[in-house]
Amino acid sequence: MVSRWMYISLVILYGFLLGPFVIIFMASFGANATMAFPPQGFTLDWFARVFETSQFVDSFWISLQLALLSTIVSLVMGMPVAYALVRFQFAASGLVETVFSAPILVPGLVIGFAMLNFFVLLGKMPVMTGLFIGHTAILFPYSVRVISASLRNLDPYVEDAAVSLGANRLRGFLLVVLPNMQAGIAAAFVLGFITSFNNVPVSLFLSGPGVTTLPVSMLSYMEYYFDPTIAALSTLLVAFTVVLVQTAERVLGLSQFV
């Protein structure tokens, strides 16, 4: 059934998907600041420049804190919802599902804009709080979905078995359900972390003076400078992602949850 021209389409697809990464990689080692192609010479200066640029270093820490915090909060709050959706059938389950998937349906830029107006401009909230709320909201749907998927893989009767053997509902959940959801929770964590860490649209409006996420500060750097520093930083981020995703895939089978 698979014919040769179909393989050609595969080559084109991967060339298109991965080609830009190859180019960024090459550009990050080129000595020429104007990034004429092909790059001339070899240097690691641009990588050094990344670490010397305080704008990047500061925003990296902010992105890291933000991603960890919002991922954890969205997981803790999403877990009971996922549990209710998977384990019970109830009339309002459609409504609950819609409400919790809504943050995916609304464009990120609009979410950021609406939250800026409501929380920061109207409610005088600190910028970091606004960012935290925005990121937690957009991670909700992922947390609920991934945890639901991992709960669905677990026989619902194991909880009843634990209870029939003398455990109360809470102990049954802690001793039997939670240990079997480890992979799902970890997968949700990795996915949530990456989603938050890479987000631009929501952060764009919510970033304020001194409080900027890494992708947003990359974007604003590019408005003023066009040199391989961004390429070097991108190479670092890709390497970081590859390690994270490959580890997660190897250990957890991440792709079944995406």
Partner: peptide, 11 residues
């Protein structure tokens, strides 16, 4: 209680 699916604790 013995369940149809056995409901053994997988972990």
């Amino acid at each position: 209680l013995v369940f149809q699916s056995y409901a053994l604790f997988p972990h």
